[in-house]
Design a protein around this nucleic acid. Sequence first.
RNA 1: GGCGCGUUCGUCUAUCGGUUAGGACGCAAGAUUCUCAAUCUUGAAAGACGGGUUCGAUUCCCGUACGCGCUACCA
Length: 556
Amino acid sequence: MSVRVRFAPSPTGYLHIGSARTALFNYLYARNTGGKFLLRIEDTDLARSTEESTRSILDGLNWLGFAPDEEIVFQSDNAEKHRAAARRLLEEGKAYRDFTPKEAPTDANVKEAIKERARAQGADKNMRDNPYRHLSTDESDERAAAGDPFAIRLKVPTEGNTSFEDQVYGLQERDYADTEDLVLLRSDGHPLYNLAVVCDDIEMQITHVIRGQDHLTNTHKQILIYEALGVTPPTFAHLPLIMAPNKGKLSKRKHGEVVSMTTYRDAGFLPEAFRNYLALLGWSAGEEQEIYSLDELIQKFSLEGIHRSNAVFNFSQDDPRKWTDDKAQWMNAEYIRTMPLDKLLPHVKAELKANKLWREEYEPDGRALTATIPSTEAQVFEAGTEMADRPEAIAIEPLEIGTYDWYIRTVDLIRARFFTIKDFSSQGRAYFSEDFDFDPAAIAKNLTKFPDLKQWLPELADRFEAEFAQSSPPYEGGVDVALSGRGGSLPFNESNIETVVKAFTEEKGTKLGVIMNGARTLLTGVAVGPSMLSVFEITGLERTIMRLRSQLPWRL
RNA sequence: GGCGCGUUCGUCUAUCGGUUAGGACGCAAGAUUCUCAAUCUUGAAAGACGGGUUCGAUUCCCGUACGCGCUACCA
């Protein structure tokens, strides 16, 4: 029989990082075995389930790229079937009506109350002491007919144990005596979780249940239901939990947005990077490789590689640079810097579009690249290729600013220092627009400290104008710069720029860094970026001249 | 309280009785020098504790401690 797995979240919030990983493992297992990956929304708790949560979970799964292979099942649609199953067990004498009045709902701290009660009962608690367990069928029917409210409980056998071979935790055994006669159907007719899960998993013909370790002990109860129903239970594999830095529970209330999948989407994470990070939380292929494509993950995934101990999702709420796990951040940056450029481009496009920085000219549109681009030349290099193994940036012919060729080369150049997709529209804004901000720290460090630059940089602009051929057409998005018309004949490329800037620096009797960093601040607005020679070239002669003449930053 | 599960560098992990206990992130130092949160090099950093079994235990067994889960007419 072919493998069928399911991811079954309850829609009581957004897609939690732990749930996302559960979904990932199910997805990987399905793909690895050629099986089906199904999705079931467990919305039986009408009080807490919301449509908005369902949407948010679907959004998260969609972002991660896990589309279910069959139609989504909503557990609430199956309530009638669950009730029928409970009724059947009742008729067969495998369950009984419990007429004990329902307890008034305890306030706020349910967990604590339950624990308290359990403590009070101690070890002596007899799980089979419910008086209604032994009520005669006639009497039970009579009271039910009379309208007495009742819950239906499973009649757990007195002697024996449940056992199953967990694919992660190994053989699990539990005496029946340790399992109470669990409620299958509430007195208001609503099926309870354990019944609903079992019925749906049977209905959906699930062969492997891969879920959080918090269900490890529930599994015994569910096996009891399977047995009562006369169905062979599926294979189980429980996953270690993902914990907060203090090894406590990771929750929205305490930890906020770090646990939500949408946060990562909105923060400029790449789904492929986050998936890769998630895969390594509690699973390992037993080797030293860390960067895996989806295909590799699918190929290498196995239940044997899953860990037994919980993993900590490491972050620091009071350090903005470590707002989320630093390995996740590193992984994202690694992907941005090293993934095949054609895979990165759609993400960059979306980001630029969202910030009104996109130009239709950047769209490939079937046209071939005419310029040689460092990493597109070796287009297929795999994510994870060492930076050192990548081809060095090579000089290119002057590019028309704003063209497809220019765009590709620019993205390739600036991605080397970026961490998230957001950086393309923030840090990298100056490459795509004249309207960019200046980082005060950059101004202080690179301009204000060297007052001479106020004259020198416009002078450098004059020098550029005099030395270089106006070989690229005016940048359309820019202001019309009045050029002297006596432009030189040199192409505006890295080696020529270097010669000119070095000569200029010597004339001024200053250090190269002073000029370069001053120019960097004027051209890009930030203190960090690629080699200035590349920046000059990619910015283009026209824009370079214009920005070097700008006095605006000096007034900020 | 009961039952269950777990415990290798700060974090994610490798090791399936014999290793200088490996890698990654992060951290530190150095290099590069036109910047850097990039890149390169180097470094510090771990088997919870106590007993067994064994020629030999991180690895197997027992106990203790600690953590986590379940213990609900929640999921």
